[in-house]
Every structure is written in C-alpha cells, then in structure tokens.
Design a protein around this nucleic acid. Structure first.
Lengths: 187, 187
DNA sequence: TAACCCATGTAACCTGTTACATGATTAA
DNA sequence: TTAATCATGTAACAGGTTACATGGGTTA
C-alpha cells in the first residue's frame, strides 16, 4: 500500500515522466522504496484514474513521446493526510541473519566468504548515501525541503553504519582479522 | 524465496509443529522473518512434498492432533548449500522515510506525533531483543549454536539503536526537546 | 553488427495478506 | 457467555517479479 504514496512523494518533490521515475526509484539516487518499471507504470495509471496525478504528453523528435506527471490538489491532500498517520515500523527481514542463525552447520571459511560479500555491499551503499548527502550539504543555502532530504539520507547512513559495524563484529567472531577502523561517525 | 529456508533453519534449531512455528515466527521471539500462518502451512506442505522435511502425527487428548516436523538429510544439505551462497543485502523499505521526505508539506506538530509513534515502537523492539539476548548470555555455558543466536540478536539490537538515535535526531530537528540519554551501547 | 538507451506497456506467475471455516477446551 | 487458545487448513485478492513486446536512435 505504500508504493502509490512513494510515487506521489517523488512527484511532489520533482514532477517527471514514468521513465524518469523508474530511474529515480532504482538508481539508488533518491529513494527508500524500490519498484520495477512494470509496477510503477501500473501504479501511475491507477493514480491518474483516481485523479491524484495528471499527465501531459510531451512530443519528442527522434525518440518516443513521454508522459509528464504532476500531482493534483486532491493528490497533494491525499499524501498529506497519509504522512500524518502513525504506522508500523519496518519489519527487519534479512537473508543474512537467517543464514547466520544456522552458522554452526556450515564451515567457517564458507561463512566468511558469504559474509564478506554482504559486508562489501553495505560499504558500497554507505558510499552512495554519503555522496548524495554531500551534494546537498555543499549547497550554499539549503531549503527546508532539502533539509528533510538530508535527514532522510542520514537515516540510510546510520542503517548502513550499523550493518557495517555488525559485519565487523561477526567477522571477528568467526576469526577473521578485521582492519582497524576509526570509530564510525555519521559526519 | 527465503521463507522455505527460514523454516528449515527454524526447524533445524528446534523441530516442532506448524502451530508452534507460527508462534516462533510472530511472537518476535526468534526471528528476522515474518510470515502468516497461512503462508507457513502452505510452505510446510511444499517442503514435505519436496522431502526436505518429514512429519509425524502426534495424537493428543482434549485437543486437535498436531504434525511434528523434522528436517531430512536432503533438507539439511539444501539449507547448508544456501547458507554458503552470497546474496543481496536487504533493501531498506521504510514508510517513515517516505513520509519525512515530504515533511515540508506537513505541520511540524503532526510530524512530531507521527514520528513519536515510530520512535516508541523501535524502543519497544529493542527491549525485546535485549531481553532475549540476556537469556542466552546468562546461561553458564553457551554452545556454538547459542553463540550464533546471540550474534544474530546483536544485529537486531544494532539496527534498533540506529533507528532510535536517528529518531532522536529527527525529533531534535523538528524542535522537540529530547530527553538526554547515555551514549548508546549495545551491551 | 551487436548491444544499449529511450519510453511505454501487457501477461503469466509467485508471494503475501485478509477473510472464511471448523470444533473442542479453558479462562475471565 | 464471551473470548481466547489449540491446530490446521481453503479461497480470494493485492502486491511484486519475470518474461515478452515494440521500434527508432545511439554508441562500441
């Protein structure tokens, strides 16, 4: 039930076409909600039918036309109402933790390799969040809108730092010498 | 695709009935994977058809019979193989972050109330993880199996601490005086 | 010449949620 | 007597993934 709201939120911050939305949802640029292009096009059709968004066809030469979506007043109110509602915290569903819960069944060397792969991915994700945050922080003046973007990104950074610290603890437990790092700081 | 493995893992650590599995999956006792009873019964039927688990009917007086499930050798190998495979880190999908990404659209007072509700839930979750961890830590001798359980729980604790610290940052940003806490420690 | 980008969609399938169903036992 | 616990399931639906489809333009 969250995807339509996530789309409304994205379009509020920056109206665009379905194709561009897909990129924003998946190029890890923006977002804490993923969706395939099929899902997004379908949700856009529904949102338009419900008159929460409107579209304008933009004719283009040498490439397909695009539909440019903007949020309607009704859509804005719908989103605004949802934002104020309390909700449930995200359930932590992790392959990795299921795997480690039966770690005693598997040779340590195998576990180390598997864990290392997750570790690298978390460090990569952290870099991405930090890079995007930097772009906002470097702006001479930040709007309140931008300040909220930074706040959200800092949540992502904190999550990744927590995972990274835990991976290091786990690698240590498994007997892997871990490179000594400076105490984590979220900047 | 993870649920069947999560079930195999749970049954490896402690064989039981479907009904008991449901409790272990949802009473936050054990697990970093949730599932409804409908899903679990269905998955159990499939796992049994694939001969990854076997069942024995236990006759009971004054209450319905139960099916007691145990992992077969084939199931054990299937699980073991999966544990060694590298996988993708969990996508962070958060209602709360979508809401905050359009925080500028909503009155601060409304945001504060909404955020407070998420904050309380994270603190509650943390308490649960800490209580379960304590039970393991207090044991006079911990098996390697138990040590892995503690490791997994510590991941949950770190995640909740990260969320809690971020909620406090967000409340601070919104102008809410936050009770001063000792620097977070995962114990 | 092959692969990828632009741009939008349909169809089949699998996963997960909600509602419905049964029926005895026990606690408030 | 109302509700909850025990114990297992079916059926309908919503959410999400994978595969298929089109067709010109650009890059290697």
């Amino acid at each position: 039930m969250t995807l339509p709201y996530a789309i409304l939120a994205a379009l509020m911050n920056q109206p665009c076409s379905g194709y561009d939305l897909v990129k924003r949802f998946n190029k890890s640029v923006e977002c804490f909600w993923s969706a395939s292009h099929q899902q997004i096009y379908k949700a856009l059709a529904k949102l338009e039918a419900d008159e929460h968004i409107g579209s304008e066809v933009i004719e283009q030469e040498n490439r397909p036309n695009k539909k440019f979506y903007t949020v309607t007043e009704a859509g804005r109110q719908h989103l605004q109402q949802w934002v104020g509602e309390p909700g449930d915290i995200a359930m932590l569903k992790s392959d990795l933790l299921i795997k480690l819960s039966v770690g005693h069944m598997v040779p340590t060397e195998t576990l180390l390799q598997m864990l290392q792969s997750y570790y690298e991915q978390h460090k990569e994700k952290l870099k991405i969040y930090q890079a995007i945050t930097k772009q906002y922080v470097q702006l001479p003046e930040r709007s309140r809108e931008d300040q909220f973007q930074v706040l959200v990104l800092r949540a992502g950074i904190r999550q990744q730092l927590a995972w990274i610290a835990w991976c290091e603890e786990a690698l240590g437990f498994l007997g892997q010498p871990v490179t000594v790092r400076e105490p984590s700081s979220i900047g």
